[in-house]
Design a protein around this nucleic acid. Sequence first.
DNA 1: TATGAATGAGGCTTCATTCAT
DNA 2: AATGAATGAAGCCTCATTCAT
Lengths: 193, 193, 193, 193
Amino acid sequence: MKFTNRQLDIIQAATKLIGEKGIQNLTTKNLAAEIGFSEAALYRHFKNKNVIISSILEYYKDEIKDVMFGIIQDSTTGILKLEKIIEFLFNRFSSNPAIIMIVFAETSFQNDIQLSEQVHSILKQKKMVFEQVILKGQNDGSIRMDIQKEQLATIFMGSLRLTVLRWRLSNMNFDLNKEGDILWSALAKVFIK
Amino acid sequence: MKFTNRQLDIIQAATKLIGEKGIQNLTTKNLAAEIGFSEAALYRHFKNKNVIISSILEYYKDEIKDVMFGIIQDSTTGILKLEKIIEFLFNRFSSNPAIIMIVFAETSFQNDIQLSEQVHSILKQKKMVFEQVILKGQNDGSIRMDIQKEQLATIFMGSLRLTVLRWRLSNMNFDLNKEGDILWSALAKVFIK
Amino acid sequence: MKFTNRQLDIIQAATKLIGEKGIQNLTTKNLAAEIGFSEAALYRHFKNKNVIISSILEYYKDEIKDVMFGIIQDSTTGILKLEKIIEFLFNRFSSNPAIIMIVFAETSFQNDIQLSEQVHSILKQKKMVFEQVILKGQNDGSIRMDIQKEQLATIFMGSLRLTVLRWRLSNMNFDLNKEGDILWSALAKVFIK
Amino acid sequence: MKFTNRQLDIIQAATKLIGEKGIQNLTTKNLAAEIGFSEAALYRHFKNKNVIISSILEYYKDEIKDVMFGIIQDSTTGILKLEKIIEFLFNRFSSNPAIIMIVFAETSFQNDIQLSEQVHSILKQKKMVFEQVILKGQNDGSIRMDIQKEQLATIFMGSLRLTVLRWRLSNMNFDLNKEGDILWSALAKVFIK
DNA sequence: TATGAATGAGGCTTCATTCAT
DNA sequence: AATGAATGAAGCCTCATTCAT
């Protein structure tokens, strides 16, 4: 196990707080109150607040990575993998909106060099995964080859992110899964050879 | 004029601070120090800090809007308009990276309802502009019609945003304009009928 | 003239501010806004804020003193003088409630030794006036002699002050003049021989 | 217990500060210094400064109420109750002058609607207690009946308050208990049938 | 493991006042 | 006579963190 139960409690509570009002809402006071114990107790489980944030990032990175690798291995063609991934992600965000602000948190941690680098590294890693999937798709003939995998990955991730962001900003007042379907039917036309 | 000179000084200094380390770096103390006067002096020019942030958002909204409308009217086909816009934006961000964190600041203001709505409204407005441009492109035959303008706008804005974000996170260690060209050649293939 | 016109404007505006929300509401900013000019302008007319407060105290001391001396000389018996005075005062407070907080401001200026002494001196002076009136009443046979003038003055002033205070605290939601009449009919029974 | 020990420390220190120089002297900085810990520590014991003030008011309201009810039940006739009460109050103020500014603080909180109402409500409650005592005195024949209990209460409380106020303004340079006796002998003559 | 108490640093804001124009 | 700009001091409050119990 990477985290103790108590640490998982904290990660979950922190996710909720960030999901509600952004990182500025993640104070030790709010966090302790959300969990239902004292602020001091937090320091039994994590060295400091930055380690908590860092752990949150790791936690969701792993969680999403695991599912994505499952999808990648199960699906046959590259284009199908992308379809399954987008389906999973929109579903995940839809059922747990709080994690959106963490998964797309790149701009939130400029403050702190170490967190900023961690966040950048996670983004690069995700991009590489998508590029590999797209490359396979180009090789298996399901994805067009006249556009480089890097640009297709940018288009895929970028439009996905923006759609999810709009959903958050609208206070989730449209059906994200439906919007995801519509986006995918557009992306599919764009990606197919 | 919408703002006094001193207000423009403050907006510029605030932009710099946010550009460097995010909104958490925009404190009254840092801001006053950046401008070179006392914290109290800020309050002669703006009612409070939220009004400063709000003004920054308005300022860059207007600035970018003006140029975009110029481009929209000058260029002939829809696809050319998009090309000019992307060129302008990458150039703008490249020459003044600080504004990136403001123009893409949507996640930064969840804290504050009013700012959050302002930021959402700006995003919606931008999306509509892109949709109109795309619609014209579809009517003039320069842009494909088998994908709805809304989805094309999402693809356009999303991939543009993600590219710029990666540049920031990489500490601007690649040539944003060149990357913009590459992205555009991909998008062009995607958009053309 | 003791004060210039501009100084009288300032005294009047300050009275209004204090009347509305107490001395804590008398800030240079509020005062300037109330008058309709700049804060800096205040310093053309008064050396500083304490001098303004001091002037307010003097102004109303004089104003009330003048009327009271008129009453004292006009009326015949001591008891009639008291009646006229109480009538005048309740009428004055009723028509201009703002001055109540100034005329009864003794607890407001503890902060500042000089103002505190000024306020004490005004109170002592008022008390002496009432004692003289009562003494005359005792001599002319209209006021009982078995209680010392000092105690009768305390009873008179004290009950008057408390009645007016209650009126202010109730947001002036009863008829002060009527309540003054009722109080006076009680006091008259108490004072008469 | 209504308050923790630390809260009582804070109430006591605040009382002292207000007693010395009025509410304007009750700043978080002064208060923390008086107690001997940091400003931040205050906020572990009270939510904010207004709650501190509110607590002070409650504390002394209760304290005085308890004693007064004891007196009311012990004494026989109405007039005797009044005598005991005045004796107790002058003694209390004499031995702890700081609380005077709190018990007579009605004009100090106009600034704040909630405090202002609290202070008004306390005053009304006290008035009612005195009116009840007086009513009993009128029924048991010890207090005159030709003046309404409301007016007698005003006379009683008003003259008491003014006497105490004069003592404070004079920097306590006369013997308050002795002055209380003198006042009472006057009031007794006034109240007795 | 947990907490109550405490704190230094810093947050935003208002205060009365000054000064050049 | 008046003002716009500025300021040092101070206001209230929250932050992340520590430590003794």
